[in-house]
């Protein structure tokens, strides 16, 4: 005997679906928090690279003054804060286009490993911020050579 093609899901499957939707909704709220690996909706957008002895965090923030940038490291959390001001107050100017965003921003990022807070180096060049964080010794992978006897 053939089963009818279209069948209603059993009641427990419907319950599982409902729970899953509920979970998705909850997770979405949490995912807005900046956390490595989650998609975030915060400025500035970051690229993070893991070099063997350091982490390199970069962000494109053109037109900043370094005085308006604040970088902090607390444990494994790197916080970038600042204000992108309009380049100049053009008094009496009328705008035809205004695509460049200005305002305040703050973003924190949790690094996957411990870093040496004394060895954090930040540079700003051509509108690109690059923060280099040297890993703590324990976090640097050690190459162990196997000796043949």
């Amino acid at each position: 005997m053939l089963w009818p093609r279209m069948r209603r899901d059993p009641w427990w499957m419907q319950e599982v679906d409902r729970l899953r939707r509920e979970m998705d909704r909850l997770v979405e709220g949490v995912a807005r928090r900046p956390f490595l690996g989650f998609e975030t909706r915060l400025f500035p957008l970051l690229n993070v690279r893991d070099k063997s002895d350091s982490y390199v965090v970069s962000a494109e923030i053109p037109g900043m003054k370094t005085d308006d940038l604040e970088i902090k490291i607390e444990g494994e959390t790197l916080t970038m804060k600042g204000e992108r001001k309009p380049l100049e107050a053009a008094v009496g100017a009328s705008y035809h286009r205004r695509e460049r965003a200005t305002g305040i921003f703050q973003r924190s990022l949790t690094l996957p490993g411990k870093v040496d807070p004394e060895k954090v180096n930040a540079t700003y060049k051509d509108g690109v911020l690059i923060v280099t964080l040297v890993k703590e010794k324990a976090a640097v992978p050690r190459q162990i050579t196997v000796k043949a006897e």
């Binding site: 957008l45 690229n47 690279r49 893991d50 070099k51």
Partner: peptide
């Protein structure tokens, strides 16, 4: 060509 492994890539260059 950047060395190391990419952990997060939110913007393209």
């Amino acid at each position: 060509q950047e060395e190391g492994e990419s952990l997060l890539e939110e913007y393209r260059t």
